[in-house]
Write a protein that binds this DNA or RNA. Sequence first.
DNA 1: CTGAAAGCGCTAACAT
DNA 2: ATGTTAGCGCTTTCAG
Lengths: 333, 333
Amino acid sequence: MRPTMGDIAVEAGVSQMTVSRVIRGTGQTSVEVRERVHDAARKLGYVQNRLATALRDESSTLVAVVLPTLRNRVFSEVLDGINEVLSTGGYRPVFGVTEYSQEREEELVLDLLSWRPRGIILSGLEHSDATRAAVLASGVQVVEVMDTDGDPISAAFGLSQTQAGRTTASHMISKGYRRFGYIGSRDGKDLRAEKRFAAFRDVVRESGAQIVNEILVEGPSSMVAGRRSTAQMVASADRPDAIYFSNDDLAAGGIMHCLSEGIEIPSELALAGFNGLSFLEALPIRLTTVETPRLEMGRRAAAHVMQASEPSESLPSPSVIDLGFRLIPGETC
Amino acid sequence: MRPTMGDIAVEAGVSQMTVSRVIRGTGQTSVEVRERVHDAARKLGYVQNRLATALRDESSTLVAVVLPTLRNRVFSEVLDGINEVLSTGGYRPVFGVTEYSQEREEELVLDLLSWRPRGIILSGLEHSDATRAAVLASGVQVVEVMDTDGDPISAAFGLSQTQAGRTTASHMISKGYRRFGYIGSRDGKDLRAEKRFAAFRDVVRESGAQIVNEILVEGPSSMVAGRRSTAQMVASADRPDAIYFSNDDLAAGGIMHCLSEGIEIPSELALAGFNGLSFLEALPIRLTTVETPRLEMGRRAAAHVMQASEPSESLPSPSVIDLGFRLIPGETC
DNA sequence: CTGAAAGCGCTAACAT
DNA sequence: ATGTTAGCGCTTTCAG
């Protein structure tokens, strides 16, 4: 159907091998032959069949990417960073979404591995044993992004979710708040948010303060959910004087509720978020949050997969690269 | 290296062909053999090599997806819709980002086609001749999303950008506004935003009103850019009484500026956006906008690629499916 | 119900 | 500088 190197070879009057060499620009070829081959290729509308190349090479230039969701800007930014770097080397991401389910992740990983990708990028450090076993057995480059609190399969680029939670708590406590609320999402399926909150809670308790109210919203986190939950929490008997949100979208919703209801920030209610999304800069009130290196985690992970040229028998020892975070003090606490 | 069907065959004491049949669940196989094969596969940690399958089949279960950017929620939602449907059939998206460049799109399309995808999903109806020629010659299913104003290569699922622009203009004019401003982005590289504005402008002029000010922001559209541009436009000599923004992020930035500066909406300044993103519901003031079927466009496009089972010689005639839009009247005009 | 043969398109290795 | 051979892992086709 579609022209192959063989067809071009006939058209150009050379062997298939010569066509292969010309097209890849490897080996020695005369100028004259090169031109004939390129002309023939153009004339026939030749498009390389990378399936064959990859089969032959026992590895493709695809990179598997496994994300928990696409409904959260955080992960599309990570994906953007990944793609940005991969595309400079002609690599392409093939991806799947787990919806925060380890079982789904397991299936997905097996499936993606069947494309013999050059590497696989996973989110977080928690995976089922089968998932870990599968990627390890596959021999492909494995990189985990987002988190540093745990044992990586091989390499990880992330930030300490625990430290981020502690830092936020310390900041809020230093500002004098003592009665805290927490608004999170995903019914505890987001392990990283859980780590942040666990650390936050520890610091709060250590300091003698307390968590007086917790709301976990159903469905994906969003400004709307944040606004609704804040309204609910503020109206409840256990009204906190400060709320820690599991991310900026929820927190921004909290700000919106306060703006609408005339609740004074931070005197009547203090708020803190997580991620440092750029839209916060546009809000009338600057949210106190923790900035995370989302693009950078993606870029570094992609770069790591790409520079894995030599399949060294001695697998590089597991290593975690902490890309850090930064507390951005705003006007909300 | 990795176990193949041949290895399993040896382990299970059958032929490779039998392994193939068992694994795919096709043809006739005895219960006993099936068990032996599955046991052997599990024992050896077998993972199918789809590169071989795809090479043999002359088509893969990958679907190429070409998007202009990942920095805009609109496209991650489309991608989400695509992935949602594709994954139900075991298909996987392989994607690339054009940054709104037709040249980049051309390279990308050729590159993605080299993976012999089952289909390719493009954004918009405007492509270079070479791009059109390449996808047509490839024989893969081609679907275009986002737009319906133009000639599709084969099938398209979108909405009339032109009608959306006209509808918004009519609405604003009916509300009595006569001096309009426009805030867009991407230096006119976003062809769909251009179509909306062109239609908007036409209606404004036909009605005897006028566009008194235009600002095209550099870089990706964002709330921050919208807030800054609104500030600039409101402070200028040619201050409009209503601003049409090319999307909701920019418009939300406009609302934020008004909130911060105490500008009364809509009496001092009216605003309208585009997309109907869900976060608008959380804002203290409801933006008037046009809701677009982003997830649905992605889903339908993916479904179209998947149901293309029979490679009918008679290519289905080009057809455009208009998924429509809906004007959502808010409090901003 | 199972097996053997052939070939998908490409490239490493070995000629010439 | 160019050509020949062999084989990557799988599945379609044809035989038993």
